[in-house]
Design a protein around this nucleic acid. Sequence first.
DNA 1: ACCAAAACTTGTCATATGGCAAGAACTGCT
DNA 2: AGCAGTTCTTGCCATATGACAAGTTTTGGT
Lengths: 196, 196
Amino acid sequence: MKDSIEQHFLNKVFASSGITQEELMRIIPRYKKVTFEKNDYLLKEGEVEKKYWFIESGFVRSYIIDTEGNDITFNLYASGDVVIDYPSMFFFAPTRENIQALTDCICWEINFESFQELFNTVLNYREQQRGLLVGSYFALKEHSISLIADQAKDRYLRLLKMKPHIVQNVSLKHIATFLGITDTSLSRIRKEIANE
Amino acid sequence: MKDSIEQHFLNKVFASSGITQEELMRIIPRYKKVTFEKNDYLLKEGEVEKKYWFIESGFVRSYIIDTEGNDITFNLYASGDVVIDYPSMFFFAPTRENIQALTDCICWEINFESFQELFNTVLNYREQQRGLLVGSYFALKEHSISLIADQAKDRYLRLLKMKPHIVQNVSLKHIATFLGITDTSLSRIRKEIANE
DNA sequence: ACCAAAACTTGTCATATGGCAAGAACTGCT
DNA sequence: AGCAGTTCTTGCCATATGACAAGTTTTGGT
């Protein structure tokens, strides 16, 4: 059993999910504290890793290499976020993306077997975790709509508003590809905004 | 209880999910056959409709109106697909999109209460439905990557390969906005492909 | 503190795609 | 069959963004 200071982060994660103290006592021991150093990979393309992580501290990036060899950031994660490749976790499908620590990170890891047991036996955990999945879907949907409907500048302003800590802590080239543009264009957009 | 001909579609849907005959007998009565006429709305923006549908026949489109008033197709559905707005179903959040029948449709509907009961009591149903959600996430992810990484022409070719029945049955203006381009550009792309 | 590497900016020019408007082809209704 | 409305195509020009390359600034390791 972890000491109470270490549990503090997980307590926060599961707070306000309707999860009871008794359920918490079953859930928390299933999560294991792990650390990653800057540039470590949480997942590499082609692997099947049946685990996922909550980030307590640090920044993480997922990316793919497209058909022309370009490195494209698919998602950016910060403290409090869940890092999970759903197809890998649930379909045993090889990951299509690389997930890499941008900074040293403290994470809480759970493997598929533990997850599955909690999911099937703890009602509120099931609800909460399904909610995480729906939330991921929703975020991706909003991002995808933004890619179609908004100008690059508006996409950047939206990210700046929604996730200022990401913009402040991640290099512009990664933010650029996440927004579907080049670092050159992002640089010009930032200049334009600064001159307004 | 529906007659066996009507059940044929649902039997197919749940086949190969590890669902037993006994479980099927609990699941199938929860789905209700409903029909939509061309142009009927399954869901309208701002509503909270706690149900979802399997499409047995027909075509369905979801779309949003962006900040400049443009109608943008967000998804296209055909026979065998699930039509669901996850945030509405699970978060009780007002739908951000309109979902409309493009043709007359036969669908199988289940409401949230029935879904929730089956999800919490039928293990294989739970697995299968979670799989649907993960599958939706995966499809959206691939589409989103394609929006960033591929040229419009490649996105069109990809859709043509993956969902030829959609391309054949849905008007080009809807396909165009789904691909993130205008109908004008799609028309030019099609001409270019035809001349190859 | 110094140097190399990485990150960021800026210039020039190229290109994919959009906006608009006109015409052609198709569709559905009576 | 005929007309109206919709869908699709095409031409012209505008514009957002990309590609490449050179310069500047920042960062990190020793």
